[in-house]
Design a protein around this nucleic acid. Sequence first.
DNA 1: GTCGTTTACTTGGACGTCCAAGTAAATTTC
DNA 2: GAAATTTACTTGGACGTCCAAGTAAACGAC
Lengths: 160, 160
Amino acid sequence: MFDPIAEARRNWERHGWGSVDAMSAATSITRAHQIVLGRVNAVLAPFGLNFSRFEALALLAFSRTGALPLGKMGERLQVHPASVTNTIDRLERDGLVQRMPHPTDGRTTLASLTAEGRRLVGQAQEALASIDFGMAGLERAHLEGIDAGIRELRRSAGDF
Amino acid sequence: MFDPIAEARRNWERHGWGSVDAMSAATSITRAHQIVLGRVNAVLAPFGLNFSRFEALALLAFSRTGALPLGKMGERLQVHPASVTNTIDRLERDGLVQRMPHPTDGRTTLASLTAEGRRLVGQAQEALASIDFGMAGLERAHLEGIDAGIRELRRSAGDF
DNA sequence: GTCGTTTACTTGGACGTCCAAGTAAATTTC
DNA sequence: GAAATTTACTTGGACGTCCAAGTAAACGAC
């Protein structure tokens, strides 16, 4: 078996196509996402969760009151409002969060963690840590190389 | 504005949750994928393409005859057979590839690049190179840091 | 050479994501 | 303080991805 990305690199060069290093990094990111998401979701599946839903629960667990406006959640998780609606629909259906009206702003809906949701997110977190978040086998230097390189990318995208 | 990933890191530590570095790297990868895919697809949209369809066309353009079995394409692109069917359906509908029977194996379908497809993929490649594949602004060292870290991840996933 | 197994692709269905448009409530403007 | 604008969320629809099941052809065993 050969490495599909190394193969793409060779082809790219052979045809005189541009930005080979960038193409390789971009393709690597796509593949890495696929690998990590697959591993993470596999571990979360027994809990009835996936990565999106886990992230939403974790965000609520970190908040002072266990409840946040949906809009704020979308901002923090960097996803579209419609995706938040969808995620919370599912978590609510499973009894892990509950929608509540905002006390002072009638436009706003709060998602509030239930006791069951708080219990489950703790268990799920432990399971994720046990597989090192899908990054098992990578040395600290590799993790930091990924993190540092991507930090520049995120900076250029205006993330901070 | 603050960095959502740095924020997640702080929360994670504050709650004594495990594998902080791995969590951070995994979350970074997710976000990087989102950024790169968004930029790449924005550039490809005027051509009626997206990243998946572009990758399929490029793969065909690199092949000796401009045609490949769908199964082989899924292997190289590392996607599910059903996704290949979907991608080729769309490319065929747009007249960029054509399905052809395999000359000797009746089970196999070939996707064959049309003249229009070959023309378009060349233009699209130039457009992608002009934005450095969504990685504009990253120094070579960062690209290589990403690439090297992810190579370990891919190795551990059995990519090569 | 026939039967069972494997391989190749397609189909139908579930999900997750986004966008555009819609509804409803707050805020701003004058 | 009424009208126009902005903000917050939901809805319907398009896409892309995967899985499971189905069809069809080739391979292998005997």
